[in-house]
Amino acid sequence: MQRKISVLLEVDPDGRCVRLSVTGALTRANQQALHPVLRRARTSLPAARVSVDLTCVHELEPATVDLLRGAVEQDAGLSGSVEILEPGAEPAEPAVAALDARRRMRAKVLRRRCAGLPVTPPGMALHAAS
């Protein structure tokens, strides 16, 4: 069975921050799927800071984060503008920490979608998390 990832791209309304929220199983093979998404985010919003949030990943193969970090450093368009948040790491900015509850709720929705389960409308949970 192939392990998959799900990526949610969030763009700050002022265009200064782009966040890629990754859920699922991040492996050596499927981490390569993040590279074009990162490049696309950088070319669309060149002044934006891009954060790759891996804190909601279910399974993380050893050395996967190192491979992703190495690919970012080797790409001239990405180096210096991409931040990778690993599981257990604290966010760098207070504004990013404020989105934590919403991110966890979205991660639950993405997990259900990856599993092929129906997603119930969040309703009041969305308002409570914002």
Rank of each mutant, 00 (worst) to 15 (best):
E86F: 05
E86G: 00
V119T: 03
E61Q: 03
E10N: 11
G80R: 01
A97E: 02
T23K: 07
A41Y: 07
S44N: 05
L20S: 02
H127P: 00
T23P: 03
R40K: 08
A129Q: 02
E86K: 05
A92D: 14
I84G: 09
D14M: 07
R3P: 03
Q2S: 12
V109G: 01
V96D: 15
M124A: 15
A33E: 14
A29G: 11
V7C: 01
G70R: 06
L85Y: 00
R40S: 08
V52S: 07
V18A: 10
R49D: 10
A92P: 02
L34N: 03
N30P: 03
S44W: 14
T120C: 10
K4L: 12
N30A: 02
E73G: 13
V52K: 09
C17R: 12
A47H: 04
A41Q: 09
A89C: 06
A98V: 15
D12R: 04
P118L: 11
R49W: 13
E10A: 14
M124R: 12
S81N: 06
Q31W: 05
L110G: 06
E10W: 03
L85G: 10
R19Q: 04
L34Q: 06
D14L: 10
G70S: 08
P46E: 12
L78N: 06
V50G: 12
A115W: 10
E90Q: 12
N30L: 00
H127L: 08
P46L: 11
V50N: 08
L60R: 00
A97T: 04
L117V: 01
P36M: 14
R111A: 05
A101V: 06
R104D: 06
L34F: 01
E86C: 01
G24P: 04
E83H: 02
E86W: 05
R42E: 07
L54T: 02
D66C: 06
A33P: 04
A29V: 13
E10G: 03
T27C: 01
A76W: 06
P62A: 01
H127M: 07
P87V: 02
R42A: 11
C114K: 11
A41G: 06
S21C: 13
V7L: 02
R112A: 14
A47F: 00
T43A: 14
Q32A: 04
T55P: 05
R112E: 15
H127C: 07
A25Y: 03
T27R: 04
P121K: 04
A33R: 12
D66R: 15
D66W: 09
G80Y: 03
V52G: 05
D53Q: 01
I5M: 00
A89P: 00
L9Y: 04
H35P: 05
V96G: 13
P121Y: 13
